[in-house]
């Protein structure tokens, strides 16, 4: 099949290739910039401290898996990994329900004053977290919700819901009205329309919102550090920070600890990168 090409298209292709050469040069430099630090993180997580000192960018002489078991111990992952999973899963669950309901109301229920609600969310998301964090901390302390999972989950749900509401609303607006009408004629209530018709049809939106929320909670530092200070409640992020502070020079171990926490993120990202990118670029997470 390759031989059927005409002469002109062949030469066109060649000139196109040549003209894109500078693009590749620039892009490969940028890829190196983006990936070499990650390569370093991965490769050095298998080395001893001495080996890292001698040859920081080469492959390990022997692949030291013991770094990971030791990092697992020192980073207390047996405690912190379940903590992070609980926080992430519960936040995703409640955000998707509440933001799904709110998105449905804004998209489909012709609320009087829906514009005010949208504006209110906008103001709410523009308030710097550091500003409301201090009074919130005092309120939570009064209510006895420091060092409790539900205390932090409530905060996360409040923080991630407005964004998810917008995202889900935009999915729900595009569902054809006929589906809703058909259900209404069958006598479905608003709630039934929501969870029997709208939710199943807008599942890509729920998946996208769930991924962004999950990533946000999994990676979150400031609120986890402030509202869950006790060791037994630390998340993988805050305990990794403590681990880095304690064993700062043990680069092999702290690298292994970092690799443990980012591996699920990277795998999920590579598997679902279109959805991730779509969700994150809609203004999802702070820089």
């Amino acid at each position: 099949m390759a031989g059927v090409k005409t002469r002109t298209s062949d030469s066109q292709e060649r000139s196109w290739n040549l003209s894109s050469l500078p693009n590749y040069v620039v892009l490969i430099i940028l890829v190196v910039f983006a990936l070499v630090p990650l390569y370093q993180l991965g490769i050095n997580s298998f080395k001893t401290r001495a080996q890292i000192g001698l040859d920081p960018f080469g492959l390990p002489e022997e692949w030291l898996v013991s770094n990971f078991t030791e990092a697992w111990e020192r980073g207390k992952y047996a405690t912190t990994l379940p903590n992070s999973v609980i926080l992430t899963a519960a936040t995703i669950f409640f955000v998707l329900i509440f933001a799904g309901m709110a998105g449905f109301a804004l998209a489909r229920l012709r609320l009087r004053g829906a514009d005010y609600i949208s504006f209110y969310f906008l103001v709410g998301t523009a308030v710097p977290p550091q500003f409301y964090m201090v009074p919130l901390f005092i309120l939570w302390r009064t209510l006895g919700m420091i060092n409790t999972f539900h205390g932090l989950i409530i905060i996360y749900v409040a923080q991630f819901s407005p964004f998810s509401t917008y995202l889900l609303r935009s999915y729900m607006v595009s569902i054809p009205q006929e589906f809703v009408d058909a259900a209404r004629i069958d006598g479905a209530s608003n709630w039934q329309v929501f969870h029997k018709v709208i939710m199943p049809l807008s599942w890509p939106g729920f998946l996208t919102a769930g991924l962004v929320v999950g990533l946000g909670v999994w990676n979150e530092f400031l609120f986890a550090q402030t509202f869950l200070p006790r060791p037994e409640f630390k998340t993988i992020v805050t305990s990794l920070y403590a681990f880095q502070q304690r064993d700062g020079r043990e680069w092999g171990l702290t690298n292994a600890g970092s690799v443990i926490m980012i591996t699920p993120v990277i795998i999920l990202f590579l598997a679902l990168q279109r959805r991730f990118i779509e969700g994150l670029t809609q203004g999802g997470l702070k820089a």
Binding site: M101, A102, L111, G124, Y132, A158, S161, N190
Partner: peptide, 28 residues
């Protein structure tokens, strides 16, 4: 009222976690 129930949880959480403490913060 039934329609507003759909939006209530998100608004309520936002009031408790963000807007309320923020207004309190202005006073503090």
């Amino acid at each position: 009222l039934g329609r507003w129930l759909f939006i209530l949880p998100v608004v309520f959480l936002n009031l408790v976690v963000i807007v309320g403490p923020a207004l309190f913060g202005v006073y503090i």
